[in-house]
Simulated scan of single mutants.
Amino acid sequence: MPLKELAERRNLLHRKSDAQTVLRHALDDQSIGPVALVSSFGAESVVLLHMISEIDKATPVIFLDTEMLFPETLTYQRDVAAYLGLSDVGIASPDRGDVLTEDVDGILHLADTDACCDLRKSRPLERALEGFGGWITGRKQFQNGQRAQLPLYEKDGRRIKVNPLASWSAQDLKAYMDKHDLPRHPLVAQGYPSIGCMPCTTRVSAHEDPRAGRWRGSEKTECGIHFGTDGRAARVVAAE
């Protein structure tokens, strides 16, 4: 079955399903094949990670370590994985040769944030997803305008992308974390409601959008992880 049709059928099937049901079915969907959760271990990541741990602690989890993350994120990743008993967390990092060739001084983000995201996120993710038929994200419709029409299932190049929390609100996320007494990312309490790489993330004031601190001062709103029709990772700028 063509992937676009598969995504459409799954969206119809799960139009009234809760996030846990979508997640459980995606992990066991023979039409999709092996599925991994891609997690930033950021401000809200613990919700999906907890759901995964209740379904199968051996579910593959891919953590993208750009080598420019906050130290707090690296510590949080280790602590949460241990707390939830996740047994298959793989760390995807940029290729050493690529870094030496393209960003040996670690300042590529100052000249071209899209190129930096491609080097440190898109390409490592593409390699990490080899062998998987689908991947799960924590994206939500409320996060910015580009995500407002985000479906539960979507065709993503050669794979299916699953967004179990697509319709969740910020209040839903908080309620879930409170109910299950889940550990919070320490930077949230310091004014970072959305957490990316250290050089490209700033604090957010109370009146701002939660993602206002990401690539502040530019039109960029997404890291650029995206798969084109050829199945290769491609950079995507906010204006597209």
Rank of each mutant, 00 (worst) to 15 (best):
A239L: 13
S93R: 15
K220I: 01
L129E: 13
E44A: 10
A212C: 11
V35G: 04
G191W: 07
Y83L: 04
R211L: 00
D103T: 08
N144C: 08
P193A: 04
F70S: 03
S218T: 15
Y153Q: 08
K140W: 06
G106K: 12
D98A: 15
G224S: 12
Q143C: 06
H109E: 13
E219F: 04
D181N: 12
P94C: 04
C197K: 02
L129C: 12
T59D: 07
K121T: 08
G228M: 10
D18C: 07
E222I: 01
D88V: 02
T202M: 07
T66R: 04
I136E: 02
L49W: 11
F142C: 01
R235W: 06
W168P: 09
G157M: 06
E208F: 07
A19D: 07
E67A: 09
G106E: 11
L23A: 01
V99H: 10
R184T: 08
G33I: 10
S122H: 03
S194C: 04
L27T: 00
R159Q: 13
I107D: 15
P193T: 02
D103H: 07
H207Y: 08
K220V: 00
R24S: 09
I55P: 07
P60Y: 08
S205T: 10
A19V: 00
A43P: 13
D79L: 06
S53A: 13
E130C: 06
S31C: 08
G133Q: 11
G134P: 01
